[in-house]
Write a protein that binds this DNA or RNA. Structure first.
Length: 418
RNA sequence: GGGGGAAUGUCCCGAGUGGCAAAGGGGGCGGACUGUAAAUCCGCUGCUGUAAUGGCUUCGUAGGUUCGAGUCCUACUUCCCCCA
């Protein structure tokens, strides 16, 4: 990659916003992108019912692509998921059934329409499932058509394979084939849609390069790869790993309120970078926010939370989440938009043990944990710390129609008798 | 085909002599300090129950020896290494 400034708006934008790690044949790609719309894709495997914040980086990259006048393809890995990407994993993952994969794909789809415009126009996004072609290959046909273009010597040299071997962790033949399948995907998309660029995380470099080479070799056509940097927080944590595990994008798996909180809790050192990556705010505005110091940087975090939540869940949800947060954290008050947990009014009249209620409301995984939490001073009823997990919560604790339960400083649930 | 080794708290790594839910670390959670930040310090980290002694379930799977098994024996499963 040369240091010369890019000509195409697409690459300029990606570079300025911090999306680029490596590019193959960057000058040539730049030339093409400057000359007119190009088509590019990113693949998403359907290993879970929702994508998470880690995927957001890729989604935003496609968004920038479309914003700068090009055509994005979202490739759903209906076929590849059946095999499992060995990249950077320590061991083989359990294989998913076809039904699981399909149901995952169905539930993932929705999210993309928030970030991309789909349709039939020249720069409208399209979604394709690689099961369409991968499922159809016969074994021998696949080997003859594509197997000839890959040498094992070369495959063994790729990091994804090499690491496994070095760590003495087994890699099945099944997984070993993943790389070929991904390469064939690229070739197929090139033939069907004239797709010339595959993008992905830096861990996908090996897989991507293979596809690039396959196209150049088999079809003698230009093809390119671009990877995004590995995303981690300033303190070295993997991005998107928090309290309950992954930060899911689907609203039913992580509420807009929690999503807003996730961004609000960004580390100071990450705010500028995340604003560039995960919002559409103009560079000048971000530069201004970045100059904020000390406690003022919280304002920048709110902007980040608002923008990011608006992109995913819409402005209304973002505003509600912001209002709820303001009420809870800045005014110590209540807001109907805080997470709410309903209990039967009769139960509350009879009295419920605090520990049990906390578990019920999702603040602790077990009564023992809730009790320990209380003992450590982390459980609050109506903002008053309660160290006894066996303390009985009754109707007398209801204030303004709810009992406000808090675990730690950041988790609040309104328990509402119904 | 032969020989040797490994599997531990279901988040990960990892110690473990026949006799305490099992050292330690990471991670996570909570507290203090702050700004809903980072760093630091302190506490917690199988389930259940208690004022407390407890009860139950955990060391690859299934059996066995034993008053008692993560630890010993047998078979099985998976993986690694060496020889062929």
């Amino acid at each position: 990659m040369s240091d010369a400034p890019f000509k195409s708006e697409f690459l300029q934008t990606l570079k300025a916003r911090g999306h680029i790690n490596q590019i193959t044949h960057s000058a040539e790609l730049d030339e093409l992108a400057a000359g007119g719309p190009i088509t590019a894709y990113i693949g998403f495997d359907a290993t879970a019912a929702s994508l998470h914040v880690g995927h957001l980086f890729s989604i935003m990259t496609l968004r920038r692509l479309q914003q700068t006048g090009h055509k994005p393809i979202v490739l759903m890995g209906g076929g590849t998921t059946k095999v499992g990407d060995p990249t950077d994993k320590e061991g083989q993952r359990p294989l998913l059934t076809e039904e699981q994969i399909q149901s995952n794909i169905d539930s993932i789809k929705e999210v993309f329409s928030r970030f991309l415009t789909f349709g039939d126009g020249p720069t409208d996004a399209v979604m394709v499932n690689n099961a369409e072609w991968l499922d159809r290959f016969g074994y021998v046909q696949f080997l003859r058509d594509y197997g000839v273009h890959f040498t094992v010597n070369r495959m063994l040299a790729f990091d994804s394979v090499k690491l496994r071997l070095e760590r003495e962790q087994p890699m099945t033949f099944l997984e070993f084939n993943y790389m070929l399948m991904q390469s064939v995907d690229f070739l197929e998309l090139e033939r069907r849609y004239g797709c010339i660029l595959q993008m992905g995380g830096s861990d996908q470099w090996g897989n991507i390069v293979n596809g690039v080479e396959l196209i150049r070799r088999v079809d003698q056509k230009p093809a390119f790869g671009l990877t995004t940097p590995l995303l981690s927080t300033a303190s070295g944590q993997k991005m998107g790993k928090t309290v309950g595990g992954a930060v899911w994008l689907n609203a039913d798996m992580r509420s807009p309120y929690d999503y807003w909180q996730f961004w609000r809790n960004t580390e100071d050192a990450d705010v500028g970078r995340f604003l560039r990556l995960f919002t559409d705010l103009p560079a000048e505005e971000i530069a201004r926010l970045e100059t904020l110091q000390g406690a003022e940087i919280n304002e920048a975090k709110k902007v980040l939370a608002n923008e990011a939540t608006t992109l995913l869940h819409g402005a209304d949800e973002a505003a509600k989440a912001a209002a709820a947060a303001q009420a809870a954290f800045e005014q110590g008050g209540l807001s109907a938009d805080l997470p709410t947990h309903e209990v039967a009014a009769a139960d509350l009249h009879a009295g419920v043990a605090l520990a049990a209620l906390a578990v019920d409301a999702g603040l602790a995984a077990s009564k023992g944990e809730a009790r320990r939490l209380a003992q450590g001073g982390g459980l609050r009823i109506n903002d008053k710390a309660e160290s006894d997990g066996n303390r009985v919560v009754t109707a007398a604790d209801v204030v303004d129609g709810v009992v406000k339960l808090g675990a730690g400083k950041k988790k609040i649930v309104l328990v509402k008798p119904v």
